[in-house]
Amino acid sequence: MADLSQKDWTKQLEEDNNSVVLDVRTQEEVDLGIIPNALHIDIYRGQGFIDEVDRLDKTKNYYVYCKAGGRSAQACAVMNQLGFANTYNLVGGFSEWEGDVAS
């Protein structure tokens, strides 16, 4: 797992053709806006989160975010334990996001 600033996270994501953006916030938070094309899996689903994440393609690079960066860091740690080699945590999360937002 790597903690990346929004600048580094965005730059690396733009250059990565094997990437998946993963939003681990609650549905209520997602309803307020989401980074375009992000996959949403709520980390608060517990075992359901682990089961759903474990079905994802482990050869991809995952750019993970939540509201402030705490839950996404936890998600990256869980994903690393499940065998994901490349996970990138967005420091500051969606609350500090300055890029595009979809509804």
Rank of each mutant, 00 (worst) to 15 (best):
E98P: 00
V30Y: 06
D16H: 02
D100C: 04
K58R: 15
S5F: 06
G46P: 03
R25C: 03
A68C: 03
L4G: 09
G70Y: 10
Q81G: 12
A77N: 13
E28I: 08
L4W: 01
G92R: 04
T59M: 08
A68F: 08
N61Q: 12
I34T: 14
N61C: 03
C76F: 10
Q74W: 07
E29I: 04
Q81L: 14
D31P: 01
V78N: 12
K11L: 07
T59W: 00
A2C: 00
M1L: 12
W9D: 10
D42E: 13
C76Q: 11
G33M: 09
I50T: 11
T87D: 02
V91A: 02
V20F: 04
N86W: 02
I43S: 06
E96Y: 05
R71P: 04
V101K: 10
E14D: 14
T59A: 05
N17Q: 09
Q27P: 08
C76R: 09
S103V: 02
Q6I: 01
N37C: 03
I35P: 04
S95I: 06
A2V: 00
D31T: 05
Y65H: 13
L56D: 05
Q81E: 14
C66A: 09
A2D: 04
D100L: 11
F49W: 13
R25M: 04
I43N: 03
